[in-house]
Design a protein around this nucleic acid. Sequence first.
DNA 1: ACATTAAATTCGA
DNA 2: TCGAATTTAATGT
Length: 225
Amino acid sequence: MIDAGQMRRIAAWSRALEEEAFERARAGTRLRDYPAGASVFVVGEYFEPWVGIVDGLAKMRSLNEEGKDVTLAGLHAGGWFGEGTVLKDEVRRYEIVTLRATTLALMDRRTFMWLFENSGAFSQFLVMQLNERLGQFIALLQNDRMLDATGRIARALAWMMNPVLYPDAGGKLDLTQEEIGLLAGVSRQTANQALKCLESVGMIRMEYGGIAILDLPGLLAYENS
DNA sequence: ACATTAAATTCGA
DNA sequence: TCGAATTTAATGT
């Protein structure tokens, strides 16, 4: 069972909830561990709960018309996702794969729906979050065809720093270059070169086991060099 | 793929 | 518990 302090730590949105809503949210959420490379759910599967990342790293991906992999978003600690599918009580249209050992928080659909219907603070949060992700997906559709490796990495990093989706992220992302490669669909070597390129224009700083983000708007707007 | 460097862990006092 | 020695992980080319 998750205690109140832990709940507030893993779910930034829970801090704004009314007393009863917070209690329900806490009681209806449980933790589950996944090893690296695990599939949390696949396309077409009915996976009931709403999910948050407590710790670790995962990616959301789907297949395009030709059956090729498209990474829709990188997901790290503090992020919650899948609300669209849970709201509509549908089957998943994308899949989630862990990139390293990861702990997820799973909230029952019953609890989620209760919060949606009874908590003003929660519905307000949902609107913000849905809108923010919609904006990301539109950006993805608009430029996916022409971004090179550096551009895709810039975008992956910028998205994982989104202040609405990840309110607790500082100015740093704890990702190895290998993990960044997995997120952007490039080799570690290519990721290394791309990061150097972004560092040379002052948008990031490379650190051991992580990346400091120096210019978020710049990363978002990054086009091919 | 290999060499280098940073960090984590173990070990001996 | 401290610091040196060893092992493991990440990075650079």
